[in-house]
C-alpha cells in the first residue's frame, strides 16, 4: 500500500535521525557514512561539547562541499586533545599554527587556493572563545574586513579551558573561573564586561553570521550548509558546554546547551550582510535558574548563602536577549 508521507513524526525535527525520514531530511550526523572528521581516540574530556561541535561542523561542511574542506585550528583544547604526537584524530587536511592566528592562517590557505585556482576547496578556521574573541581577534577582524573566503567557527565554552579554566572575554557575568573567583562581594566574572562577538562580526558586514549550540543539531547543520553557500568571510559562534570548566555532569552537555537557549541566555540567530535575518524561537521557556543551577561555576549563586540578586540580574540579561533577538514567537501560546 502506498502511504502519503506526513510531516509529523515522532521526532522528526529534533532528534539526530529517525528511520521514518528520507535521507535528505535526516541530519548528516545520522549518516552511517559520515566523515567523522574528528574521529575516535581523541583525548577530550568525557562529554566534551567542543569535540561534539567540531565533528558536527566539519562533517556537515564536508558533506556540503563533496569532501573539499581544509581546516585551520587555533591552539586550545580542540587542538590539544586532537593531535598529541604521535596520533591525530583528524581525517581531513588540518593545520595548527598558533593560538592567536587561526583566522590569518586560514586567510593564507584561502588565498593560496585562490592563487592556485582551486576555489572548489573551502577553508574553515576554528578556535575556542579565547582564541577567537581575545587573542585572535585582530587577525579575525582582519579576515572579516578583507572578506576572505573563510568560515570561522568559534567553539565557545566561555573560558580558557585548556590552560585550566581562566576568564575570557566570553565568560558570562558571575561565572566562576580560576581568574574570576567566586569570592568577594561581586563573585565570579564582572557584570558589564565581556563581548558578544557575533554582533561585532555583523558590524563587519560580512555575508553570514550565525550562532548555534550543540543541542540543536539540525539548526547547526543548516547553518553550516548555509554558510557554505556564501563566498567571503563567514562566522559561526557555537556554544559548547565544557563539563570540566562549567562543573557540570558529562551527560548534561546537550541538556545545558538546550537550557541556555530555552532560557534566552544564549540567543541563537543568523544575520546576513550585517542584518539579523532570523532567530530560533524558544520552544519551552525556562527561567535562567534552571540553566545555571546544574553548573558548579554558578554554585555560589544558590543555596543558603546564595545570591538571588545576581540570579535576577542574569535573568534580566536573558529577558533582554529575548527582546533584542526576538526569541519568543509572537502570539505563541504560553
Amino acid at each position: 500500500m502506498t502511504v502519503t508521507p506526513l510531516k509529523f513524526y515522532q521526532v522528526g525535527s529534533f532528534a539526530v535521525g529517525n528511520r521514518l525520514l528520507t535521507d535528505e531530511e535526516r541530519s548528516e550526523q545520522s549518516n552511517p557514512n559520515r566523515v567523522n572528521a574528528l574521529t575516535s581516540g581523541h583525548r577530550a574530556c568525557q562529554g566534551c561539547g567542543e569535540a561534539l561541535g567540531a565533528r558536527y561542523v566539519l562533517d556537515t561542511a564536508m558533506a556540503a562541499t563533496d569532501g573539499k574542506i581544509m581546516a585551520v585550528n587555533a591552539t586550545g583544547c580542540l587542538e590539544v586533545f586532537s593531535t598529541p604526537y604521535p596520533e591525530t584524530s583528524w581525517r581531513i587536511p588540518w593545520l595548527h599554527s598558533l593560538f592567536g592566528n587561526a583566522a590569518a592562517v586560514a586567510s593564507g590557505v584561502a588565498t593560496a587556493l585562490k592563487a592556485q585556482g582551486k576555489t572548489d576547496i573551502r577553508v574553515i578556521a576554528q578556535g575556542g572563545d579565547g582564541g577567537t574573541v581575545d587573542i585572535g581577534f585582530g587577525p579575525l577582524s582582519g579576515m572579516w574586513e578583507r572578506n576572505d573566503d573563510v568560515l570561522y567557527v568559534c567553539y565557545d565554552n566561555e573560558a580558557y579551558m585548556n590552560t585550566g579554566v581562566q576568564r575570557s572575554g566570553a565568560t558570562p557575568p558571575a561565572a566562576r573561573t580560576n581568574t574570576s573567583h567566586a569570592s568577594g562581594p561581586e563573585p565570579g566574572a564582572h557584570f558589564n564586561q565581556g563581548k558578544f562577538l557575533p554582533l561585532i562580526a555583523m558590524a563587519h558586514h560580512i555575508p553570514y553570521v550565525a550562532t548555534a549550540t550543540v543541542a540543536d543539531l539540525h539548526d547547526l547543520e543548516a547553518k553550516v550548509k548555509k554558510a557554505m553557500t556564501f563566498r567571503g568571510a563567514r562566522y559561526l559562534h557555537i556554544l559548547v558546554p565544557c563539563p570540566l570548566g562549567w562543573g557540570s555532569r558529562s551527560d548534561e552537555t546537550i541538556m545545558l546547551s538546550r537550557a541556555a537557549v530555552e532560557s534566552g541566555f544564549f540567543p541563537v540567530f543568523e544575520a546576513e550582510h550585517g542584518v539579523m535575518t532570523s532567530s530560533k524561537k524558544i520552544r519551552r521557556r525556562i527561567p535562567v535558574e534552571e540553566y545555571l543551577k546544574p553548573q558548579k561555576r554558578y554554585a555560589h549563586l544558590f543555596g543558603a548563602n546564595g545570591r538571588p540578586d545576581i540570579v535576577e540580574r542574569l535573568q534580566r540579561i536573558a529577558d533582554h536577549n529575548i527582546e533584542q533577538y526576538d526569541l519568543v514567537e509572537k502570539g505563541a501560546e504560553e
Partner: peptide, 15 residues
C-alpha cells in the same frame, strides 16, 4: 529504541 540516531549522533567519541 526506535532508531532516532540520537546516540549515534551525540557521542563525542564516535563510539
Amino acid at each position: 529504541c526506535f532508531n532516532c540516531d540520537n546516540c549515534f549522533g551525540v557521542c563525542p567519541d564516535n563510539a
